[in-house]
Amino acid sequence: MSNWSLRAGSVLVTLSILLLWQLVTTTGLVQPIFLPSPSSTFANLLRGLTRGDLLALTISTMERMIHGWTLASLGGILLGALIGLSQRARYWLTPTLELLRPLPASTLLPVGIALFGLHPNMLLGIIAFGAIWPVLLPTIHGFSAIDPRLREVAKNLGIGPLAFALKFGLPNALPDVTAGMRLSLTACLIITVVGEMITAQQGLGSTIIMAARSFRSTDLYGGIVLLGAVGAANNALLGLVERALTPWRRARA
């Protein structure tokens, strides 16, 4: 099947879901207080973005998400490189990491609040903690699973540990790391929104939960649509970055 018809199909599916949504609401099958029509949702969204404070709230959520993601990515890559390259670090740290990994970040929020209070940096720390795993685990694997033949090449050339990490480890890990960073960004968005909901810090999360509690359904759905758009845009952007960072993966004879 051609690329063109695949794309056309995806647009068609999206449009028919919107159409179905419109039909369900205009026929009165579902009350607008539970599910507003897409047209009124988008109109409200546009109004909020242009005249209200929705744009500022979106920006503050995205800022928090991106800061948390940067922390998670840097931490994940540095810690992952250390654990991947050093067998000793692997032995020492793996059990602790395996204990921490399954903890849902949302359960740590109350702990964070109790220990550090409702500080914005506390939320940032929780976001980074919850989103570090998709980066950390592939980084460890990428740095530790270097072909033994390449290790031999490095040894024969007398390549030092730092140059080995940068010239062999990092590129070997890069495809997995970038894929992990994409997953991590999604995790960041989720934890940011949940965190905002729980800690009532300015952002889309708190706006959505306030809208839900006061039955402002167009605001609620507008927020959700906005979050979906943010997530999709992030993923598309990172996909492009990933392709640019790993050109050899597309190189075929």
């Binding site: 072909d147 033949r149 390449l150 090449v153 024969n156 590129p171 890069l174 050899w248």
Partner: peptide, 15 residues
């Protein structure tokens, strides 16, 4: 210097 038989594994695929 050493030349290995398995050139596919001895070259850095990302370079």
């Amino acid at each position: 210097a050493i030349v290995f038989q398995d050139y596919g594994r001895a070259l850095l695929p990302w370079r």
